Amino acid sequence: MNTPHSLISLKNVYAGYTPGKMVLKDVSMDIFPNDFIGIIGPNGGGKSTLLKAILGLLSPQKGTISYNFPNNNQNNIGYLPQINSFDKDFPIKIIDVVLSGMMNASVTKRFSKDDKEKAIYLLEKMGLKKLYNSSISNLSGGQMQRVFLCRAIINNPKVLILDEPNTFVDKNFENELYNHLLEFNTHMAILLVSHDIGTISSLVKTIACVNEQLHYHNSNKISEEILKTYNCPIELITHGKIPHRVLKNH
């Protein structure tokens, strides 16, 4: 059986915001079709910097990032950011937010009837069809997160990146969100940044811990000993029928 080519490849990447001061050090990672990778790590460990580097928003100071897409086109990446800083007073309709995900190639793109029907279809899947012509200012945080998820996938990306997607999602939609991600994973690779290891470990296929360096664990099974080995100082919380159990910081 042929080994699939990686979609994105990071080789010995050093990245930061000040020359000589690295947030990420010697990071190497390959993202393959249908990967579902959970990204974990402490605050300030470099998770956001890693995403910015992969998205092309931050150039590595050393090392390389290559994209094995047609024409090396980074428009094959869908991105769901944390939306806590989005200006809800910006005068834009919900359907236009979703359609803006198709403007990567050209800011002057004219949207066809099919484009608009696809946007409405995606909003319907998220339970927001009736609001498609409303202003974004009318939405709750959870509803806005759903709109931005539609925006992230409307272009059928080969890689979907989500930064703490359950931060503003209401509990009624959280399980539905994860079911959507499992569906998306049948035809795209997913990188999911989350602090909730207990939840994502049952969802993702593999886990990468980012704490200046990146340690890749080719499984979704995470234990306290593994976190010690990876120098990943976070808390591990278990969920289920037993009482919640929090392991000490390490």
Results as ranks from 00 to 15, higher is better:
Asn12Lys: 09
Tyr14His: 05
Gly20Met: 04
Met22Trp: 06
Met22Pro: 02
Ser28Met: 09
Met29Val: 06
Asp30Trp: 10
Phe32Leu: 11
Phe36Tyr: 08
Gly46Thr: 06
Ala53Met: 06
Leu55Thr: 04
Leu57Gln: 12
Leu58Lys: 06
Ser59Thr: 14
Pro60Ile: 03
Gln61Ser: 14
Lys62Ile: 09
Gly63Gln: 05
Phe69Thr: 05
Asn72Val: 07
Asn72Met: 09
Ile77Phe: 00
Ile77Arg: 00
Gln82Val: 06
Ile92Ala: 13
Ile92Asp: 07
Lys93Tyr: 05
Ile94Thr: 01
Asp96Thr: 04
Ala105Tyr: 10
Lys109Trp: 00
Asp114Arg: 15
Lys116Pro: 02
Lys129Phe: 04
Tyr132Asn: 10
Tyr132Thr: 10
Ile136Phe: 04
Asn138His: 15
Asn138Lys: 13
Ser140Gln: 10
Gly141Ser: 05
Met144Ile: 05
Met144Val: 07
Gln145Val: 07
Phe148Lys: 02
Leu149Trp: 01
Leu149Ile: 08
Asp163Glu: 07
Asp163Pro: 03
Pro165Ala: 08
Pro165Val: 06
Asn166Ile: 12
Asn166Thr: 15
Thr167Met: 12
Asp170Ala: 06
Lys171Arg: 14
Asn175Gln: 15
Asn179Trp: 11
His180Cys: 14
His180Gly: 09
Glu183Met: 11
Glu183Thr: 15
Asn185Lys: 08
Asn185Met: 11
Thr186Lys: 12
Thr186Ile: 08
His187Arg: 15
Leu191Val: 05
Leu191Asn: 00
Asp196Arg: 11
Ile197Leu: 08
Val204Pro: 01
Lys205His: 10
Thr206Trp: 06
Ile207Met: 04
Ala208Ile: 04
Asn211Ser: 04
Leu214Ser: 00
Ser223Glu: 04
Ile234Leu: 02
Ile234Asp: 02
Ile242Asn: 14
His250Phe: 15
